[in-house]
């Protein structure tokens, strides 16, 4: 989602010059977040709210610090990250595979099309008791819950992406004697990549969200589980610490995703800085 502000010209420049360009931008980027946090702290200390309704940001940071020192934070963070990324990896592989199959084969399209359309908007969280019974309450069931929610945007984006590949491109590749497999690997998938990446950019935070929600509902370790425990005991600082931790983790994931996008799509028009209107 981030825009690359460094134009090609700037990239050639030397380091200090580059830093001088980026630094004010970085500061500007931090400004809105800093303003939000300052507003939070001031509001919390103004006495309008009780510490239960809105604990001060400083207290929340202290709590996160203590959790970090005690080690709990890292276990929970690692577990949530592992579950979300495992689910995401499955979504990427299976989602692109199903999406491609749906675009290339009439049979696959016939089978998956209605299932995807019905399955996507279904509130799958209602099937939690069944998932618990089948898969338990540990990693497997949480990852499964995340996969069955986050895979749909990937499938939809893959189908749309492949559909949008210009026919001239396919025809000319065929004329040059490309086999169906080469065609898929070297022409169709790369051309559909921007759309697929968009699907992945939606799926990754979704995988994180569902992982956390599943952790909240099934308990145990993980950021969601810790947040639910805090919530049950009306430990507001703990709840807000969870919000901040999940936001930070999500921000890092989303940033990483847009970096990957920029790398993979270096050839695409969007990779160049836009001529701002």
């Amino acid at each position: 989602m981030a825009v690359r502000h460094v134009t090609t010209r700037a990239r050639i420049k030397t380091w200090p010059a580059k830093a001088a360009r980026i630094l004010p931008l970085l500061l500007a980027r931090c400004f809105s977040v800093a303003a939000l946090l300052a507003a939070w702290e001031i509001l919390a200390r103004s006495g309008i709210f009780t510490p239960f309704q809105l604990p001060p940001f400083s207290a929340v940071v202290l709590r996160i610090w203590n959790d970090g020192a005690a080690g709990d934070l890292w276990i929970n963070l690692a577990l949530t990250l592992y579950r979300a990324l495992a689910a995401f990896a499955i979504c990427v592989l299976a989602g692109v595979a199903v999406g491609t199959a749906m675009s290339r084969s009439g049979l696959a399209r016939w089978f998956f099309d209605p299932i995807v359309s019905v399955g996507f908007p279904m509130p799958k969280i209602a099937f939690l008791p069944v998932v618990i019974l089948w898969l338990g309450v540990y990693d497997l069931s949480k990852i499964t819950m995340a996969v069955i929610d986050a895979i749909f945007p990937v499938i939809a984006a893959t189908v749309i992406g492949i559909q949008g590949v210009e026919r001239e491109l396919i025809w000319s590749a065929r004329n040059m004697g490309a086999s169906e497999r080469d065609l898929l690997r070297q022409v169709v998938l790369p051309a559909a990549l921007p759309q697929i990446m968009t699907g992945l950019q939606v799926a990754l935070p979704l995988a994180l969200i569902v992982t956390v929600v599943a952790e909240m509902l099934m308990g145990g370790y993980g950021l969601g589980g810790a947040m639910m425990t805090a919530s049950r005991f009306a430990n507001s600082t703990g709840v807000f610490a969870g919000i901040v931790e999940i936001a930070a983790l999500g921000y890092a994931l989303v940033k990483a995703m847009s970096l990957i996008r920029r790398r993979l799509l270096a050839w695409h028009p969007e990779a160049h800085a836009p001529s701002t209107v």
Binding site: P129, I132, L133, V137, L217, M218, G220
Partner: peptide, 18 residues
């Protein structure tokens, strides 16, 4: 070990040996 599940699902949790 404590295992969390909704109350209505408890009979099934026991009978399915979870």
């Amino acid at each position: 070990t404590l295992l969390e599940a909704p109350l209505p699902a408890m009979p099934a949790m026991l009978l399915e040996k979870k």
